[in-house]
Amino acid sequence: MTESLFFIFAAMAIVSALMVILNRNPIYSAVSLVITLFSLAGIFLLLEAYFLAVVQIIVYAGAIMVLFLFVIMLLNPGKEAKFLSPKNPRIFIITLLSMAFIGMIITLVSGSVNYIGEAASSTGDLGTTRNIGLTLFTKYLLPFEIASLLLLVALVGAVLMTKRHLR
C-alpha cells in the first residue's frame, strides 16, 4: 500500500517537474510546480512528516505559488522563444550532466558499502504538530526567532526593492 502510493506520488512529482522546465508558457510551468509540490506533500505524509506536509501545501503550494503566479501575471512575459532547439549543444551537455548526477547517486545507494544502515522502528508520531512544536520551541528556539527576523528583513527588502523611487 505505502509502496504503491510512493510510486504514484513520485511519478506524479517527476512528470510535473519535467513539465515545469519543459513548458514554454510560464503559467503552465507554475501550475505544474503546484502539482509537484502537492505530490511532495503526499510523500511527506508517507514519511510521517504530517506537519510539514500541511505546511508544504499551505506555504509552498499556497502562498509561494500565488506569489509566483502574481508576478508572472504582472510581468506578462509571454512564451519563451525557441528555448529547446535540438541544434543547441547546451541541451545535450546539460542532460548528460544531470544523468551523470543521477548515475552517481545510483552507484552510491546501490554500492557495496552501506552508508545508511537499518531503518529505526517507527513510533508513528514522528512529525506530528505536537512533536515539531516541542522541539522547535525548546531546542531550536533561538534559530526559530532568528528565522522570524530573516523573514522580517526579507519583507522590508522586498518592499524597498520594488519601490519606484528610492530616496
Binding site: M1, T2, E3, F6, F7, A10, A13, I14, A17, L18, V20, I21, T36, I43, L46, L47, I94, T95, L97, S98, M99, F101, I102, I105, I106, V109, S110, I116, A119, S122
Partner: peptide, 21 residues
C-alpha cells in the same frame, strides 16, 4: 510496507537533476 530509503534518495536525486537542468 514502506519503501526503503534508497528509493527516496533516488527520487530526490531525480528531482534535483531536473531542477538543475
Amino acid at each position: 510496507m514502506t519503501p526503503p530509503l534508497e528509493y527516496y534518495l533516488l527520487f530526490a536525486a531525480a528531482l534535483f537533476a531536473i531542477g538543475v537542468a
